[in-house]
């Protein structure tokens, strides 16, 4: 019985220490300043999400998505026709321990190829 209790106590201490070690370093993390701009270069075109830097600013802010084609920016809502088209995008906002998580998925194509896609996270 004593050995069982000792073993259980050892495992409990190990688990607690593991959780502390796993979480503690990120108290110093630059999480609130993670740059969420997605930047993908494919040829001369770029797919960029802009204005997402700053953890404290994104929540309840307007989602700003810009699509660049040969140096000219277009808003995703008006992109169609020539050049790159924004095919799909989405965002979700869910809570995670110690803060909030945000991500956006998007992709674009010209004709049928090539794809450019990105997944941004802010934690």
């Amino acid at each position: 019985m004593i050995r069982t209790r000792k073993a259980a106590a050892t495992l409990l201490v190990a688990g607690t220490l593991g959780a502390l070690v796993g979480l503690a370093p990120q108290a110093f993390a630059k999480a609130t300043f993670v740059d969420a701009n997605c930047f993908r270069a494919v040829g001369t075109s770029y797919l960029i999400w802009d204005g997402m830097s700053g953890y404290d600013n994104w929540y309840d802010n307007h989602l700003a998505i810009g699509l660049y084609y040969q140096g000219t920016r277009k808003d995703y809502e008006s992109v169609s026709g020539d050049g790159w088209n924004l095919r799909a995008y989405g965002d979700s906002r869910t809570g995670v321990t110690g803060g909030k998580k945000w991500y956006v998925d998007a992709s674009a194509w010209n004709g049928s190829n090539p794809w450019i896609g990105a997944r941004c996270y802010v934690t």
Partner: peptide, 17 residues
Amino acid sequence: ASATVFSLALTLGQASR
């Protein structure tokens, strides 16, 4: 077992943040 529990707890901590 202790090493495993420690590692798994650490991993879950990393995942959460």
